[in-house]
């Protein structure tokens, strides 16, 4: 470890990143609409989620098993989403 840096530095940097993502997302909503607007706003939401999971929730330093648990919910949600979408997308 370097000699001086404050232990709070990483979380403060992450917070700066979160605020930047929020502002970009809010600003983009003035210019973009429709699909592109949705994609951009969800992209920034995903960035925020990744930052919070990795740093605030310390998933970066966790054992593989814990990460697996963290991913399980999203995986199962994807199962539900994909199969339900399959129905709605192919209804006659």
């Amino acid at each position: 470890m370097p000699s001086t840096p404050s232990p709070f530095r990483p979380v403060l940097l992450v917070f700066a990143g979160l605020m930047a993502a929020l502002m970009l997302s809010a600003a983009a909503s003035y210019g973009l609409s429709g699909t592109s607007g949705t994609v951009v706003s969800l992209f920034f939401a995903t960035v925020k989620l990744a930052l919070i999971f990795a740093f605030f929730m310390k998933l970066r330093e966790q054992a593989g098993l814990v990460r697996l648990f963290a991913m399980a919910g999203f995986f199962w949600l994807a199962i539900a989403g994909v199969l339900i979408a399959a129905d709605y997308a192919t209804r006659g």
Binding site: S29, S41, L42, A45
Partner: peptide, 11 residues
């Protein structure tokens, strides 16, 4: 974080 774009940012 996800509710915000899905509810407030639809244009």
């Amino acid at each position: 974080v996800f509710l915000y774009p899905l509810l407030y940012l639809i244009r």
